[in-house]
């Protein structure tokens, strides 16, 4: 397990290296002066620019400049936004939790709904249930998320009036935000209307989360279905049948675990896709997350914000990847004790 952790850490370091190189080179590739792109100080005076130049080590060669940039990142300085002149790191700390909350919620929904349905489809292979599930999955996968979001608002918020159409929580509730995570903040808050606020926050998150979850859930259905089908055909399942276990026992004791292992490997990859969907959905549902902020920065040509936003989002996705890798290793004994040279 220690070596496994070291390997993952190693991978993380190299990915971070590449990501920072990419975001550093973006400051050269964007139009305008590199120093202003990287720091976001558009209204700086000559003296301020001179100070900035020394802090970003502009006299040194490109490698030294890169080191200075990395140093800035690690000291928590991502520059200021070109359009609003606010500190980007602060903005991100304020906005990222909302996105994490939303995407995690959607991710859980997609997994909890998608994977079991996929298993059910595989168990009823070539029957009506299987075909119906596959057809629904195909439709769900093909519907574009921006249209689905608008449709959901039209039906559930405007016509039926069940759920709010946008925002994270109703403005009536005054919740202090020490962590930035809405649900945690509500639970730790001293507000007398804590439980109503919690209910309200749930009502707000359901619609966007389901809209985001629709496409990944259908992918999970198909992944889980094919994984389960291949597991059901293996010789160890046949051997357990010969052993005299009932079908339900086989499914729950052997098939599900083996199929899950195959699914989890792909689930991590789907997370990047899910975050992209979340960014668009945030715009539609007016969700105060980093996705909406990033898309707005793209509209406003706020190069510093784009650069840092990309860096932060990709780090987030990569961390989720590592977590799924750990889950995979926990479930799969073959991955845990991989021998030298075996992969």
């Amino acid at each position: 397990m220690f070596i496994f952790t070291l390997r993952k850490l190693n991978l993380f370091l190299f990915t971070m290296l590449l990501l920072t190189i990419l975001s550093f080179s973006l400051s050269f590739l964007f139009p305008g002066e590199q120093l202003i792109n990287i720091s976001g100080q558009i209204n700086a005076t000559e003296q301020e620019l001179a100070i900035l130049a020394t802090s970003y080590n502009q006299e040194g060669n490109i490698f030294e400049q890169y080191l200075a940039y990395v140093f800035h990142i690690f000291s928590g300085d991502l520059g200021v936004s070109m359009s609003s002149q606010t500190d980007i790191a602060g903005e991100i700390v304020r906005l990222l939790p909302a996105t994490i909350e939303l995407s995690m919620f959607a991710f859980v929904i997609a997994t909890v709904i998608g994977v079991p349905i996929g298993f059910v489809a595989a168990i009823n292979h070539n029957k009506v249930t299987d075909n119906v599930i596959l057809a629904v999955a195909m439709i769900g996968y093909s519907v574009p998320v921006f249209w689905l979001g608008l449709l959901a608002i039209l039906t559930f918020s405007i016509q039926l009036g069940w759920l709010p159409s946008g925002g994270q929580i109703s403005l009536l509730y005054e919740i202090e935000r020490p962590t930035g995570f809405m649900f945690i903040d509500i639970l730790v808050s001293e507000s007398p209307h804590k439980w109503q606020a919690l209910q309200n926050a749930y009502a707000h998150i359901i619609l966007p989360a389901f809209v985001i979850a629709a496409a990944p859930a259908t992918v999970f259905i198909r992944l889980a279905r094919s994984a389960m089908l291949s597991v059901l055909e293996t010789s160890y399942i046949r051997a357990t049948r010969a052993k005299g276990l009932s079908f339900i026992q086989i499914i729950f004791r052997h098939a599900i675990r083996n199929a899950l292992i195959k699914v989890i490997q792909h689930i991590g990859l789907q997370f990047a896709n899910l975050v992209t969907l979340a960014m668009i959905t945030e715009v539609i549902f007016n969700w105060p997350g980093i996705g909406r902020w990033l898309i707005e920065s793209i509209y406003q040509r706020d190069y510093t914000a784009i650069q840092s936003g990309l860096l932060v989002l990709s780090t987030f996705i990569f961390i989720v990847h590592i977590i799924t890798d750990y889950t995979y290793a926990a479930l799969n004994p073959l991955a845990r004790g991989a021998k030298y040279g075996s992969r």
């Binding site: 046949r238 004791r253 004994p333």
Partner: peptide, 14 residues
């Protein structure tokens, strides 16, 4: 019944 290739006949995760 016992099968050929016994390794593949045992559940790899259990």
């Amino acid at each position: 019944m016992i099968f050929q290739e016994p390794i593949s006949c045992l559940d790899p995760t259990t």
